[in-house]
């Protein structure tokens, strides 16, 4: 692609907090900061991978983009229009363009509805002008596109395996011909061989329908496989955003570097050779975030300055982003290639 990429979606200064507890009379609610200072763009036709461990806010981010959760602050600009300011009824209509695929395929399907009803549901509400026959025709076409047989239309979700159920979920997301689909851990609940089928299906559908995908996963190998660019989140903040190759060959942030060495490699010789950059401890609680850099508690390069000021998200050549005070020093001290 040589033309200048169109920014389909732009996220500006997004912040989302949750208050937990405080329902009772005497307990003061605690504030959990799920996302803060989120700034990035999604280009038309790309697949943007979002990786992070538990508590990184990756699913919250996906839901804030789709306005399934309303962010505390910031803007979600869809082709220049701020979705957070849109009245509910207009947002509801806008959902034709923005869809989602869920992690647990069976839980995301209404057990009392048939496959046909489930897939037709978005059309019923978003395209009321379609006749019953037109609706059915579209449902059948979409089912064919995701590899479901027409005779499955009257069956119920519980009669399907996880992989097939996920195909139903994909068909539901696809039936309104959206421009963007948020895939929230779409393969984590599936068996390995089925995972690969679904990943291939998503790639083919993306090409066939001209989709832009946001692919959220905790599995860096899967994200790297499907994504053009990868956004790495840690405790609700962006630590790095770069192309898949850059992330893999030339990670700048110490967290990305550590994450890469921790990813299991299905290759015994490589796995034995490499040294794991053992991150100390576990992800701290997002309820009382640390001062300065959120990653410093586990970072072996941390210095006093990391505790004092929060690193800003720096834009490097080619539009990649990184948020670390010391990435230049770290790169000089331990060039990549020595490990991995």
């Amino acid at each position: 692609m040589n033309q200048t990429p169109v920014n389909l979606l732009e996220i500006r200064n997004l912040k989302k907090t949750f208050s937990i507890g405080g329902e009772g009379l005497f307990s003061r609610p605690l504030t959990l900061t799920a996302l803060e200072d989120i700034n990035f763009t999604i280009r038309k036709d790309e697949t943007l991978g979002i990786v992070g461990e538990s508590g990184s806010g990756k699913s919250t981010l996906g839901r804030c983009i789709l306005q399934l959760l309303s962010p505390d602050q910031g803007q979600v600009l869809w082709l220049g229009q701020d979705l957070t300011k849109l009245p509910a009824e207009e947002m509801r209509k806008r959902r034709q363009d923005l869809q989602i695929i869920f992690q647990d395929p069976l839980a995301s399907l209404n057990p009392r509805m048939t496959v046909g009803e489930i897939i037709a549901d978005p059309l019923r509400t978003l395209r009321p002008e379609l006749s019953k026959e037109q609706r059915r025709e579209r449902v059948l076409k979409t089912m064919a596109a995701v590899g479901l047989l027409p005779e499955m239309i009257n069956r119920y979700p519980h009669e399907f395996s996880g992989g097939q159920a996920q195909r139903i979920g994909i068909a539901r997301a696809l039936v309104t011909e959206p421009k963007l689909i948020v895939c929230d851990e779409p393969v984590s609940a599936l068996d390995v061989s089925i995972q690969a089928q679904i990943l291939n299906l998503l790639a083919e559908l993306k090409d066939a329908f001209g989709l832009t995908l946001i692919f959220i996963s905790h599995n860096l190998s899967v994200v790297r496989h499907v994504s053009d660019r990868i956004l790495v989140l840690y405790l609700g903040r962006i630590v790095e955003l770069a192309t898949g190759d850059e992330i893999y060959m030339d990670p700048k942030h110490p967290y990305t570097r550590a994450l890469l060495t921790a990813v299991p490699i299905p290759d015994p010789r490589l796995a034995r050779q490499r040294t794991i950059d053992g991150l100390k401890g576990e992800i701290p609680s997002p309820i009382n975030p640390t001062s300065g850099c959120t990653f410093r508690t586990r970072c072996r390069f941390a210095q006093p300055q990391c505790a004092e000021t929060r690193p800003v998200l720096e834009t490097l050549d080619g539009g990649r982003l990184v948020a670390c005070h010391r990435w230049r020093e770290i790169e000089a001290a331990e060039p990549i290639g020595a490990s991995a």
Binding site: S161, V192, S193, I194, A196, S221, V222, H225, G244, I265
Partner: peptide, 24 residues
């Protein structure tokens, strides 16, 4: 063989995986 080809590998960015067809 099918399992190996179904597992994405962080070091190799293949265009397509070669999944096993069908279901368990």
């Amino acid at each position: 063989l099918g399992l190996l080809h179904s597992t994405p590998h962080i070091a190799k960015r293949a265009e397509r995986l070669d999944p096993i067809q069908g279901m368990p």
